[in-house]
């Protein structure tokens, strides 16, 4: 079942066409990826899906409801959550309070009155929060201020915050960026556990790390989709080889003909 659909979406920044007439669908419980070189328009497209800014043209539907001009908060209410390319947490709060904020909004109405009537302390020993601390191996860092964590720990916390909200669609913007190999494996293990439970869309440069569990890959170049399908199918696509791997297909062909 189609859960997310972008139809003929275009986004311009002045003369630059960052996303050019892109149509894309995401299906329920699918784990899909978008790859492309720098400036391909991946993150801009991602931002359009999450409501960071609206498209200049085209529409975005979530479960057949048009959400093109909905705010991020409205999309969160529908169950769409995202992480950021640069790790995004609240560095001036403790790990546990970051999780409390994520949990409270997802499971309570979080009106201003509720925010006034509830203290962080009341929710710090919540079962779900305790469980997620265990899952993400953050238990020992519980009371530490986030500014004192390593990049890998912050990345785990960011994904933990998103998971805690139990979103229906999880959009991950370069979740492996800047991580050491051991940290990459830890994050991948967490993502593997979510397969079949959530719809996940990953924008990632390190394609070799995620290729095994991506069910579908979409390759973007200069704001447009140039290939879509399985990993091998995409990687052997001439346009992808030219733009993504920067392989000179014509020279290769001539060399093959010459030999």
């Amino acid at each position: 079942m189609e859960i997310f659909r972008a139809s003929n979406v275009t986004k311009r920044f002045g003369a630059l066409v960052a996303v050019n007439n892109v149509s894309y669908s995401l299906h329920e419980h699918e784990v899909a990826g978008i790859i492309g070189s720098n400036g391909a328009g991946k993150t801009t497209f991602f931002n359009l899906l999450t409501g960071m800014f609206p498209p200049d043209e085209g529409t975005i539907h979530y479960r057949d409801v048009e959400i093109t001009h909905e705010t991020p908060q409205q999309r969160v209410t529908r169950g769409v959550m995202r992480t950021f390319q640069l790790t995004s947490t609240f560095d001036n709060l403790t790990v546990i309070d970051n999780l409390v904020l994520a949990y409270f909004r997802a499971h309570r109405k979080a009106s201003l009155l509720q925010l006034f009537l509830n203290t962080c302390k009341q929710h710090r020993n919540n079962e779900k929060i305790t469980a997620i601390l265990e899952t993400f191996d953050l238990k020992d860092l519980r009371d530490r201020e986030v500014r004192n964590l390593s990049l890998g720990e912050k990345r785990r916390l960011e994904i933990a915050m998103t998971m805690l909200a139990e979103p229906k669609v999880l959009l991950l913007d370069e979740p492996l960026a800047g991580l050491a190999e051991s940290e990459i494996q830890a994050v991948l293990e967490i993502l593997r556990r979510q397969m079949g439970r959530q719809t996940i869309l990953i924008v990632e440069h390190k394609i070799s790390h995620v290729k095994d569990f991506l069910q579908r890959i979409t390759v973007m170049h200069e704001g447009s989709i140039i290939a879509e399908g399985g990993y091998d199918e995409c990687m052997s696509h001439p346009e992808v080889r030219r733009s993504y791997w920067q392989i000179d297909i014509d020279a290769e062909t001539s060399a093959e003909a010459g030999s």
């Binding site: 999450t50 960071m52 705010t71 991020p72 908060q73 969160v76 209410t77 959550m81 995202r82 950021f84 995004s88 947490t89 609240f90 560095d91 001036n92 904020l101 994520a102 909004r105 997802a106 979080a110 915050m161 909200a165």
Partner: peptide, 11 residues
């Protein structure tokens, strides 16, 4: 410190 993150948590 991070208004974007807060917004994308739904606040």
């Amino acid at each position: 410190i991070n208004e974007d993150k807060l917004q994308f948590l739904g606040y």
